[in-house]
Amino acid sequence: MSAYITATGRFLPGDPVPNNEIEDYLGSVGRASSALRDRTLDNCGIKTRYYAIDKKQQTVVSNAEMAAEAVRTAVERAGLGGDDIELLTAATTVGDVIAPGFASMVHGELGYGPLEIATAQGICSSGMMALKNAYLQVAIGEKRTAVTVASELASRGLKSSRYEELDSDRGVIPMEAAFLRYMLSDGAGAAVIQDAPAASGISLRIDWITLTSYANTEKTCMFIGTGDSTVVKSWMDYPATADAAADGALHLRQRLTMLPHLVRVGVDEYERLCGMGKFDPEQVTWFPAHYSSERMKTILLDELERRGIWAGRPEMWFSNLTRVGNIGSASIFVILDEMMTEGMIKPGDTLLCMVPESGRFAVSFMHLTAVPAPEAG
């Protein structure tokens, strides 16, 4: 049996926020805030992003609500109703609550009838974890119709009020925490997975999904819940939550010096899969890719060229990062939604999606083939 993405949906909160308005929403932190912003934005290439908080730093739509809106759009486009969905898999980095799981909260927002749920927890790769769960269940006939959603609400953890206790005496915050304030965006993306192509339009047959962790050899690069990447002390080991916050344990951080190594790990995985015969790079039409900055794309393509590995032309590597920002686990879904709804994909096209995660280094690839509706032949 096969499994197909028959419809997609996305939800991006509010209006796009240009670079010069970031601090109107997030506020300023530290004496070098604007200089850091400009340097970060020059490297990442992001021009606009979306926030689920307003200029008073109040949340206007929850993470689960964004996810539910993306699901509703995808399900409606598939010509389905809520009672047709047998499985909901959901992913996020940080949900609205620690527990219950994110899928439970999204199901509650949707109000759909009883169904199976699964929550995937992680960072960028969690969306692919959730999608693989749905894909496999449909492919083996366990379910006929499933929906996967990934959603991120980073902004409420990046607002200036969250940093007041951190390094307040010196008036600065660590670069590894500060630069993420200008990189991350809010939003959600969803995909309906069914056991047959849609009755009209283009569907994407899921040929395979791989997700490989390199945590056995790699150190933690991106993290939250500890003040140090060695993870010797959890935020729950502090005497009180306020003590954890003051030590920076509740701020998302990323070891910037490790990012170029993530690219090499990603190319290693690309080369390994190609060598296994999982795909022929010369037959790939599109390379939809999630990356955190335009600079990372350049480093990636340079590394492929240095190794003499064919990976298409630069314009075949598609991302909407510059327009929607870095939405973490939701990014690949929002990318595919744009490609599907804008008519970029034609019958017979093949797509090799790439989602690297810097958490403790995991890399996911997905191979898709565009197929027409049955009556279209």
Rank of each mutant, 00 (worst) to 15 (best):
T6H: 06
A7T: 12
P13W: 02
P18H: 09
E23K: 05
E23Y: 00
G30E: 03
L36Q: 13
R37G: 11
T40I: 14
R49V: 06
A52Q: 03
D54T: 11
T59K: 14
S62A: 14
N63T: 15
M66I: 08
A67L: 10
T73M: 14
R77V: 11
T89Q: 02
A91Y: 00
T92G: 08
G101A: 15
M105L: 15
G108I: 04
L110D: 09
Q121P: 00
S125D: 12
M128A: 14
M128G: 11
A130I: 14
R144V: 02
A150Q: 03
S151L: 00
Y163M: 03
R170L: 10
I173D: 02
P174C: 06
M175R: 10
D186W: 04
G187Y: 04
A196E: 11
P197C: 12
I209P: 01
T212F: 01
Y214W: 05
N216M: 08
M236P: 00
D237C: 14
P239I: 03
A242N: 05
D243M: 07
A244Q: 01
A246P: 00
D247F: 09
A249T: 09
H251Q: 15
Q254A: 15
L256Q: 12
L259H: 02
P260F: 02
R264M: 07
F279S: 09
F287C: 05
F287W: 12
A289W: 01
S292Q: 04
K297I: 11
K297V: 07
R306Q: 11
R307F: 06
N326M: 05
A330I: 11
E342M: 10
M344S: 14
D349K: 06
D349W: 00
V355F: 08
P356F: 07
F361K: 02
V363L: 05
V363D: 01
